[in-house]
Write a protein that binds this DNA or RNA. Structure first.
Lengths: 198, 198
DNA sequence: TGCAATTATGAATACTGATTCATGTTTCAA
DNA sequence: TTGAAACATGAATCAGTATTCATAATTGCA
């Protein structure tokens, strides 16, 4: 629970950041168990013991990475949505921003998913926080008549599920994903559904 | 790749099944790394070494479990859909069946998700196989005018994403999930989308 | 500048747990 | 019934690696 401690020297702050980047890379690539502290410090160019000056345990860096992902994702999506006044179009912009982000930092993305097994509490906190904010947005949009009524909670999770899965399949698994196609198709589904119009 | 070998005696067949059940329980509860072979054999009531008579490695039982999940899920969803002639309603029935299944065998469900890290190939094979069949159904339904046109590939993955996430949030995290609410809300979204009708 | 607090180092410690193996026991086809 | 093939056992092996620690080197404030 601790580790809100910031290093006291400039060098310390840099080292910590270096180690965190290294951890992101190594853990993202090899997975939590397979990634050893030695791998991380080698990648960071420090001695083995240095790691423990900044992080009490291996689980702890991992938690830090999950938290970082939380911040960055929020920031990214929020920024992408900010300019868009049409709330339905904001959905589209948010989805696109999320998928781009997955492409930019695949390691962080994988780490969050692995958190489910490595640090269930962090995983839950991450998605719950995200979903709650999402549900609020949907509720407000429905109140204003910009989208139809419908359970905001279920909708929020369903939409997050779409984003996650499309990220897996069309961003992580594809060399050169066609984001436009994916985003457009998904958005059409989100806006109109699949049911034939009478 | 091997291990298509079936035990030669009745006792052997039973033992193998016992070990597989035990592995499902233990790995599902503790996760792949934390679950030890000793845990599994203890749960199964056999000696440690017995495990290696039936499975070459720990990874191997894991793979078997992923395969089993593939069979069972397919069977379950296929059966649920079978009777329903309306293809849109079939979506709903399939979703409900999947969510019930997650509630019935949470361990298997978690194992498939963990496969992403433990055995990426098995994970990919599992979901790709599923998605391909799904996309075919959607394509056929669209051709018959039972649902609107739209990229079947993207739709298939998006719908799978909805099912997965709702399973996480409303089945695994809830003591007594209200499946009706979840399925109804999600289905409304899938059928009509959120866009206001002009 | 000088020194107390910080930070760096990597060899040594400690422990966990997958896999093997030599030695019995059980099964079942002939 | 019987003996060769299958199967069961669990102590011992073996490897990996998280974490500690005693010993320097740096830093930055008084």
């Amino acid at each position: 629970m601790a580790n809100v401690t910031v290093p006291r020297t400039k060098r310390g702050v840099e080292r910590r950041a270096t180690l965190l980047k290294a951890a992101e890379k190594v853990i993202g690539e090899k997975g939590f168990s397979a990634a050893s502290i030695a791998d991380i410090t080698r990648e960071a160019g420090t001695a083995l013991g240095t790691f423990y000056i900044y992080f009490p345990t291996k689980e702890d860096v991992f938690r830090q990475l999950v938290l970082e992902m939380g911040h960055v994702t929020r920031t990214t999506v929020t920024k992408a949505i900010a300019g868009v006044s049409d709330r339905l179009q904001a959905e589209k912009a948010g989805l696109r921003a999320f998928l781009s982000f997955v492409g930019d930092r695949p390691s962080l993305y994988r780490i969050v998913e692995e958190a489910r097994f490595v640090d269930p509490d962090a995983y839950r906190a991450y998605f719950t926080g995200f979903a709650d904010a999402y549900a609020d947005r949907l509720r407000a949009a429905a109140a204003d008549g910009e989208i139809t009524e419908g359970d905001p909670e279920v909708r929020a999770w369903a939409l997050m599920g779409i984003a996650k899965t499309l990220g897996d399949r069309f961003v992580l698994w594809e060399e050169k994903p066609d984001l436009d196609l994916v985003v457009d198709s998904a958005f059409d589904l989100i806006r109109d559904g699949m049911g034939p119009r009478e």
